[in-house]
Amino acid sequence: MKVVVCSKYIPDPNLPMTVDPERKRLVRDPAQSILDPGDEFGIEAALKLVEEHGGEVVVVSMGPEAADTAIRRAMAMGVERAILVTDPGLEGSDALTTAQVLSRVVATEEPDVVICATESTDAYTGMVPGAMAAMLDFPQLTFVRSIQVEGSTITVQRDYENGYQSVKAELPVLITVTASIAEPRYPSFKGMMQAKKKPIDTRDLGAIGLDAGQAGQAGARERVLEIRKVEIDKQTRVIEDDGAGSSVDEIVNYLKQVQVI
């Protein structure tokens, strides 16, 4: 079974996010960027599938050259091989272009399963996987929390508002996974050493058959017109409890003040 995981290199979500008002974009500082923590769940799910059924896990990523650090992390977890699409012309790509680029590369791999995260931790759009599924003409099984493959049939449980749905399809499929799918393994020292030697195939726009005019800022349909600071006039009042519940009076007063009790 061949499993492709689409994973993204993003600014560390635990650090404050900065916006470049001139270029109307997120500042992406390689020193502070990492593999999207949300992607580790998909990588884990992919590794488990291959451990059970045999085959290979390939990571596909679109991003700057420095994104190889994110790929190395996936490799340290056990991924064997990766393709990184990187080109200055890709800067400023929107969700649609990203899906176009990724689906072109994924198609050449002829995978049985494509795994994405439900949404990226920096863009939060959740639009890339569904758009990719359409371009690949694969069924999309989204918000998946467990996967079972028997022969060429895949059965998954997918979250929905008030519970879950169990759905079935023939391979190949594209799935998006939630964080309940599996606890990501921590890379071992040996894994980290091996990762350094694993192959990353780097491709530019030409290699995937797109012109500069179709990608990046030039090809983007979504355009940022303006970025504004919003004033958050939050006035936090912090009180300290004495360990015996002395804060309760103040909490009650506050709740009365905001009229919920």
Binding site: A95, A133, M135, E222
Partner: peptide
């Protein structure tokens, strides 16, 4: 969830840009 599913796949099908 279902709205996002439909919108994302529709975007790739037509294709059209999206704002989420």
């Amino acid at each position: 969830f279902p709205a996002r599913d439909v919108m994302a796949r529709l975007a790739g099908t037509l294709p059209r840009g999206v704002i989420a």
